[in-house]
């Protein structure tokens, strides 16, 4: 893809969509036609900064949840587990051997691992405590195998082969788990995205409200601009430029605040990790690492705020200007 062409195309779209020719063109700064003090720019920039900050936090939560659930899913779905329950009258070890042979003959599986009797008992220790005589208990045994992602095995055939040949065997491919995880993960991501949408919509409404207010309080200026031959779109563009800068300012301030917070958490997380109860902190908050995606998301949100400001103020200005005459 030709980079220059893409850039020119994007700028063309931006110009067309937001009609920002005035902004792109003005090399030398001319005094704005809308007085800055009158349009309550400061408090609106603060509102947008807060919105951008909240949106950045929400986006980082969405990113973390989606990353985490992807991680869980891939590690869980790479593995199958075969459980063999002891049945009365059948010794378990030959059944284990049979199952291991079936697994090793199934294409697409690797790293088959047979848990020995002691290992299986060890797995149960946390629940049952040690010092128990496991010989008295019908302890189920376990075999795990890794799925070869490139040529996955036919799990249904494997399931049939196991149930026909091995007594008490059951195959768990973790599908129920991964499905549930992905539903939970997706719901969380959707919920955070919806929150993000609401925050941006709120910013949009604030900008629309401020645009209308600015136009009404500057109606005498608008009238003079009309008399000296300014077109409606020229006048609307003045308000758009005004609010675009407020949007950029607010977006940048909010973004910087969010990145500062991420950085602080990052440093704190490293500090916790090395402290005596670091493990608990990590369990609670996760290993917080400041990744590139989060920073890109914050910058995208700052940009989005500016674009929302430009778009909403233009639409509002176009609408309001007709009502003023």
């Amino acid at each position: 893809m030709n980079r220059g062409l893409l850039d020119r195309f994007l700028i063309g779209v931006l110009k067309r969509f937001f009609d920002l020719r005035g902004v792109f063109r003005s090399k030398k700064r001319q005094q704005a036609l809308i007085p800055h003090a009158s349009a309550s720019g400061g408090s609106l920039a603060a509102v947008i900064a807060i919105m951008a900050f909240l949106a950045s936090l929400t986006a980082s939560v969405a990113l973390r949840v989606s990353n985490a659930s992807e991680g869980w899913q891939s590690s869980v779905s790479h593995e199958i587990t075969i459980q063999i329950r002891p049945t009365l009258g059948t010794p378990i070890d030959p059944e284990m051997k049979k199952a291991a042979i079936i697994l090793s003959e199934t294409p697409g599986l690797k790293n088959t691992y047979v848990y020995s009797k002691t290992e299986s008992e060890k797995l149960l220790e946390p629940w049952l405590g040690n010092g128990l005589d496991f010989d008295q208990l019908p302890v189920p045994r376990m075999i795990t195998a890794q799925i070869d992602k490139k040529s996955p095995p036919d799990l249904e055939a494997l399931r049939v082969a196991l149930s026909e040949n091995v007594k008490g065997a059951s195959l768990d491919d973790h599908r129920a788990w991964t499905q549930r995880l992905s539903v939970v993960g997706r719901t969380l991501v959707l919920a955070t995205l919806a929150t993000l949408g609401l925050v941006i919509a709120a910013a949009g409404f604030a900008i629309a409200f401020a645009t209308r207010g600015a136009m009404i309080s500057n109606r005498e200026i608008i009238e003079v601009l009309h008399f000296v031959g300014a077109s409606e779109s020229y006048i609307a563009r003045q308000f758009q430029i005004h609010f675009l800068w407020i949007g950029i300012k607010g977006g940048i301030i909010g973004g910087i605040a969010a990145i500062t917070l991420f950085l602080a958490l990052h440093i704190a997380a490293r500090h916790w990790a090395s402290s005596p109860n670091g493990a608990e902190m990590i369990a609670l908050f996760g290993t917080f690492s400041l990744n590139l995606n989060a920073i890109i998301a914050v910058m995208a949100i700052a940009l989005l705020m500016a674009l929302v400001a430009a778009f909403v103020s233009r639409v509002t200005a176009n609408r309001t200007i007709r009502g003023l005459d």
Binding site: Q30, Q31, L33, P35, E220, I221, E223, V224, L225, F227, V228, G229, A230, S231, Y234
Partner: peptide
């Protein structure tokens, strides 16, 4: 008169030319 208070004399007088782009 209806001059714009936040613009200088020069900017006020140039306004009709400026709004024509």
């Amino acid at each position: 008169f209806r001059l714009l208070d936040h613009l200088t004399t020069y900017e006020n007088v140039a306004l009709p030319l400026r709004v024509q782009g």
